[in-house]
């Protein structure tokens, strides 16, 4: 995290807007919103210095529910938009919010390159293993046998493993959270924001409407049994064999973030013309 260090005495409520979410009752994303505001309060960040950037999906509606600056962009491109914002405004704390469709399918390419680029931002994917907003189509994390109207009998295609992809692509911080545990999620989010570079936090966030089976997740999640590692090899092995329900910080790297020098007076514009003078 870079940005202002002035700490206010903050309450989570200071970071909530008055807007009523459009989410279904019981949607996991309510808890993710709660974790956001708790993490911001924990860090004591002035809300005007936080930018929450998202794409399209139920999960991507989150920016306007905070009292921060927000950008609800087009489907799948939030990471790119956030990259442009952060390199030109390194003083801001940039949070990117996405869903498994937004972030892993249409935005998949940007995910790889955001990890690789390692700009200081925190990427939160609310993974419900479904396209919620478009009413229940499979995403890249949906189980192959999961039956939908679009894919009767299931896709038959194995889901991809976002945390492994993140590690292989160079993410500097990798964690998994469960929306049903907002305090733990807030702690991990605060840690992710503090950590320099590209931090990736996957939050298992049930879609109670199109994936009622995900209500069982609260029984399935468990704290990761081994402590976080900075060893990419170890992390790779753990993440490859992980069943998707280990919760906690799983990897913390130490690559320096990309932050090109910016601002300053620079040379006179007439200097640039010298290229063209005979």
């Amino acid at each position: 995290m870079s940005g202002p260090t002035t700490r206010h005495a903050c309450k989570p409520g200071d970071y909530k807007s008055e807007l009523k979410p459009i989410w279904c009752p019981g949607c996991g994303d309510y808890h993710v919103l709660m974790s956001f505001t708790r993490a911001f309060a924990q860090l004591g960040l002035p809300s005007e210095n936080i930018a929450v950037v998202s794409g399209i999906g139920c999960s991507s509606r989150i920016p306007a529910y905070t009292n921060c600056y927000g950008f609800h962009g087009v489907h799948g491109r939030s990471l790119a938009l956030a990259a442009g914002l952060k390199v030109t405004r390194p003083d801001l704390t940039v949070i990117v919010a996405s869903g498994d469709g937004d972030g892993y399918s249409i935005g998949g390419n940007h995910f790889l390159h955001a990890c690789r680029r390692n700009i200081d931002m925190t990427y939160v994917v609310m993974d419900n293993r479904i396209y919620g907003m478009t009413k229940g189509q499979p995403s890249p994390t949906t189980e192959p046998e999961f039956d939908t109207a679009l894919t009767p009998g299931g896709t038959g295609v194995a889901p991809f493993h976002p945390l492994v992809v993140a590690l292989a692509s160079g993410a500097n911080f990798i964690a998994r959270c469960f929306s049903g545990a907002p305090n733990e999620t807030a702690d991990i989010l605060a840690e992710a924001i503090r950590h320099p570079g590209f931090s990736f936090v996957e939050v298992l966030s049930p879609c109670v409407t199109f994936r009622p089976d995900e209500k069982d997740w609260k029984e399935m999640v468990r704290p990761a049994s081994v402590p976080e590692t900075s060893d990419q090899g170890k992390a790779a092995r753990r993440l490859m064999t992980d069943d998707g329900f280990n919760i906690g910080i799983l990897y913390r790297g130490h690559r320096p973030p990309l932050q090109p020098a910016i601002g300053g007076a620079g040379v006179e514009l007439s200097e640039l013309e010298k290229d063209f003078e005979l």
């Binding site: 491109r77 790119a80 442009g84 914002l85 910016i262 300053g264």
Partner: peptide
């Protein structure tokens, strides 16, 4: 030349990224 005047150019992974990057930067005031 942008670097000389305090600006920056970022190479994008594709045009979808390039256009969204400039929207993000401009939203921030640049």
């Amino acid at each position: 030349n942008l670097a000389k005047v305090g600006g920056v150019l970022l190479q994008a992974e594709d045009e979808l990224a390039a256009i969204n990057m400039i929207i993000g930067a401009s939203y921030g005031g640049t």
